[in-house]
Amino acid sequence: MIEVDHLTKRYGPHPAVEDVSFRCEPGTVTGFLGPNGAGKSTTMRMICGLTPPTAGSATVGGRPYRRLPNPGREVGVLLDASAQHAGRTGREVLAVAARTMGVDTRRVAATLDLVGLNPAAARRRVRAYSLGMRQRLGLAHALLGDPRVLILDEPANGLDPEGIFWMRGLLRDFADRGGTVLLSSHLLREVEAVADRLVVIGGGRVVAQGGRDELLAGAGTLVRARDPQALRLTLDRAGLDATAGTDGGFVVRAEAGAVGQAAADAGLVLTELRSADTGGLEQLFLTLTAGSSTKESVK
């Protein structure tokens, strides 16, 4: 299990991540979504003990990552497929990791085979690997210690369609056997196909989270007004469950007629009122994260 509790990270006056909380349960794949600069990578680095939080906490299996006695045996991490020793062969990379973790080196060949790196590829230097091969090697490294948890940041980058389909099956099987997966990806259709739960982040804050089917089925009505604060108060007073986007809009779990009537009764001028459930996860993502920062410097 992964538990993130009010995580906040500031760089000077700039909040990269602000009060982020969510849980990833055993037996599930959690899709962690957001535009570039939303705070996804920063959050994952804080979970893995690579970036110290300004406030809040994150635990894996009930303990902070840095306090795990042998992290690789409990948590498989892939945050950057390029962060591998370019002069070693794929087999050597895993052999060193196996010795570090105290894993039987006989697992190296089996894990390479699991991720689709054949003996010829295993003998090649990592500098000669394509991005897709590096992703496979990084995933092999994450799986080598037979962990209970996987934390993966954009693991499908560089994979061809067949590779993406293969990865989807691998992660689904891992979760179905009781594992916990936190998966960040821009490939929304693939996330929609494999994830049980979704956490959507925009501007450093969680803008929506819940079961995939619940969020998609309950996308409801998108509404925007000239006065977003007055709209928020109106929706609250009408008892309408609404999730704020990052551009002053709201996704309301109610019919458009009920939302429009509440706004009319309050004398509000609406600038948009329409169904929010016509485009699946892609439409939900765009609705919830509209207006988010797109800066590459903080992810």
Rank of each mutant, 00 (worst) to 15 (best):
P147K: 11
Q283K: 08
H14E: 05
R91D: 05
R127W: 12
L144I: 06
T243I: 03
S82N: 14
L198M: 00
V223K: 04
F165A: 14
Q261I: 00
G34Q: 08
A256M: 08
D213W: 07
L198E: 00
A81Y: 02
L216W: 07
V17Y: 07
E25T: 09
V20L: 14
A97I: 12
A38I: 08
L139P: 10
R127H: 14
S41F: 14
G210V: 05
E255N: 06
A110K: 08
G249A: 15
L78E: 09
M167S: 07
H186A: 01
T54S: 15
D277Y: 05
P53A: 15
D277G: 11
A244T: 01
T42K: 08
F174K: 07
V77P: 09
V103E: 06
G178P: 04
H85Q: 12
R274C: 12
P64F: 11
V199E: 03
G260P: 02
L281W: 02
E18G: 00
E3Q: 13
G72R: 03
Q261D: 15
R124F: 10
G239K: 10
A225Y: 04
V149A: 09
R106V: 01
T100R: 06
H141D: 12
G49P: 04
D176H: 13
G163A: 02
A175R: 03
D227C: 05
A263C: 14
D160K: 09
G220S: 06
G280I: 05
A242K: 03
V149C: 14
G27C: 06
D227I: 02
S82T: 13
L273T: 04
S41Y: 10
L231K: 04
L114Y: 04
H6I: 00
V108C: 07
A217V: 00
P147S: 06
V96L: 15
A110E: 15
T51D: 13
E3A: 13
A276P: 09
P69R: 15
S293Y: 02
L270W: 11
I201W: 00
S185Y: 04
Y65R: 01
R107Q: 10
V206C: 10
C24P: 03
I151V: 15
M1Q: 05
R107K: 08
E25K: 08
I164W: 09
A242G: 07
L143M: 10
